[in-house]
Simulated scan of single mutants.
Amino acid sequence: MTANWSTPEGLAAIKDALAATIDGWAPPVAYAVGISSASSSPELEFPHVNAPGGTHGLPAVVLAKMLGHANGSHTYDLTRPQLEAAVETLRPAEACTSLDHPNLAAWRTVLGELESNPARTAYAVFIGDLDSPVESEAEATLRTLL
């Protein structure tokens, strides 16, 4: 079977097939890619937040597969090559013109920020359960945005 990146149904099938390759996969309640501030502020910036009830599951699976994440809450430092690979992996989804692709746009924004200021750090934050304890500053910031 050939992957169909051009329809919402095809993207859902790709997400399900990729998720099936992650042992113990459980979709996060919320997730986002963020970047450290360009100033001395400790606040992280999240160009796009995937809030509870969101419909953008394929980017979560792409990130999780790349980072070795299966379930629960965790914050990962995200290298520029990792984020570039995630963008490249998800890029074919743009063939589905009936959907917006806010994660791709956000990830590209973060890549641009990393290129212009290599001292900044990117993060991938997964929240498995909103009732679980906060595990990182990045997760705390993401939770305030939900």
Rank of each mutant, 00 (worst) to 15 (best):
S40L: 13
P28A: 11
R80A: 07
S6P: 05
V61L: 09
N4K: 06
I14N: 00
L114P: 00
I14Y: 04
E45I: 09
L130F: 07
A12L: 11
E94A: 06
E139Q: 14
A70F: 10
R108K: 15
A93M: 00
R108A: 01
E84A: 09
D131H: 09
A12D: 14
W5G: 04
A17R: 13
E84Q: 12
D129L: 06
E135K: 11
V61D: 03
A64H: 04
T121R: 08
P28G: 05
L58W: 00
C96W: 05
Y31T: 04
G10R: 09
L146P: 00
V125P: 03
T121C: 13
I35M: 05
S132Y: 04
S36F: 02
R108W: 05
E9F: 08
K65V: 06
L58S: 03
A12G: 14
L83D: 06
P8I: 01
S6E: 10
M66R: 14
I22L: 13
V29H: 11
A20V: 04
E84L: 05
A105F: 02
I127A: 04
K65Y: 10
L83I: 03
I22K: 07
H69E: 05
A64L: 08
G53Y: 04
P118W: 07
P28D: 11
A17H: 10
Y31C: 03
E45R: 09
A93D: 05
G53E: 10
P42W: 10
E139T: 08
V134M: 09
A70S: 15
H48R: 12
P42A: 09
S39V: 06
W25C: 07
A51R: 15
V29I: 13
H74R: 14
V62Y: 00
A26R: 13
I35P: 04
C96A: 11
A38Y: 10
G68T: 01
H69T: 03
T7F: 06
R143H: 09
Y31F: 15
S41E: 15
L142M: 10
H74F: 11
P47M: 07
A106H: 02
A19G: 06
T144G: 14
H48E: 12
T141Q: 10
Y76F: 15
G112R: 11
Y123L: 08
A86I: 01
H56E: 14
A138V: 05
H74E: 13
V62R: 00
P118S: 08
E9N: 12
L63C: 02
R143W: 07
V29G: 08
A93F: 05
N117M: 12
S98K: 09
L142C: 00
T7Y: 10
N50Q: 10
H69W: 14
L44K: 03
A124Y: 02
S98E: 11
S132H: 10
L67P: 02
P102Q: 11
T75S: 12
H56V: 07
A51E: 13
P102D: 07
S116R: 14
V110D: 04
K65C: 02
G10T: 09
A51L: 13
E113P: 03
